[in-house]
Design a protein around this nucleic acid. Structure first.
Lengths: 131, 131
DNA sequence: CTCATTGACAACCATACGGTTGAATAAGGA
DNA sequence: TCCTTATTCAACCGTATGGTTGTCAATGAG
């Protein structure tokens, strides 16, 4: 499966409060569909659907114990999200730092505010760069 | 806004590849709607909708520069996600460690495999615990 | 003032989503 | 064997989503 697709599934799966709640419960310990359904006032079928979504996203795996199909949380998928998030957070924070440095340098040489624009660090001139 | 709702919006916003791509571009630098729309073969209106979703999730903010409405990435929202993810990842990993310790302790006293069930660490007996 | 640019809003369409009910499958227990 | 439990599958319903086209508001340039 394409990694992009997988990321989409994971994010979409966690966009639902009930499914996040299920993940929270599974973090405590494995559980069956019936057990997971109990706290909510929805049918077992609905929870089964939620579990299918979580399963397709790779967040939970199922095993078999007689008629039961216990659900198990697969924590490693979280790494995929964390990696994605951290990447852009760091990028954004880096950009913020650069802007901060720019403002500081402008502040330093206050009095001849005519050529300060040349101090702009290269690489963040996205605005206005496109045709 | 309820935090749960906010989290849902953020996850839902990032569940779309185009919107993740937009976030990636904004991490490099602010941009206008038109600039953001260019790489994709969808209309500007569609991108505007995407930006509304990202805005409602608190992921991007808008300012005004003449007719233009530059988009700016708000990195702090990532913290909300990271916190949620780390919480359950750590819980799941902790549970994994406990299971590992259990298996190790069982392995140690191999030979009298009759009462090993009492060695189960407390707190992870979710399965079968619900009434 | 008039026009071009930038972007948002409204209405519409097809599809996906979360939920339901009802029936089917799988596995034990009487 | 028949019945109960646990879970899924199938069909349906209302609403949300991502996309389109068309129109309108805001602003700057001629």
């Amino acid at each position: 499966m394409p990694e992009d697709d997988r990321l989409s599934r994971v994010f979409a799966a966690l966009a639902d409060p009930t499914r996040r709640d299920i993940v929270a419960r599974l973090a405590v310990g494995d559980a069956t569909v019936g057990e997971l359904a109990e706290p909510y006032d929805v049918t077992v079928q609905a929870v089964s659907k939620h579990l299918k979504v979580l399963g397709d996203a790779g967040l939970v795996s199922r095993s078999r114990d007689a008629q039961r199909r216990p659900c198990h949380l697969e924590a490693e998928v979280f790494d995929l999200m964390t990696k994605w998030i951290e990447r852009y957070r760091q990028q954004a924070e880096e950009r913020f730092r650069r802007l901060d440095a720019l403002l500081a340098s402008i502040d330093e040489e206050s009095g001849d505010g005519t050529d300060g624009t040349d101090d702009r660090p290269a690489g963040n001139d996205q605005t206005g760069a496109a045709s």
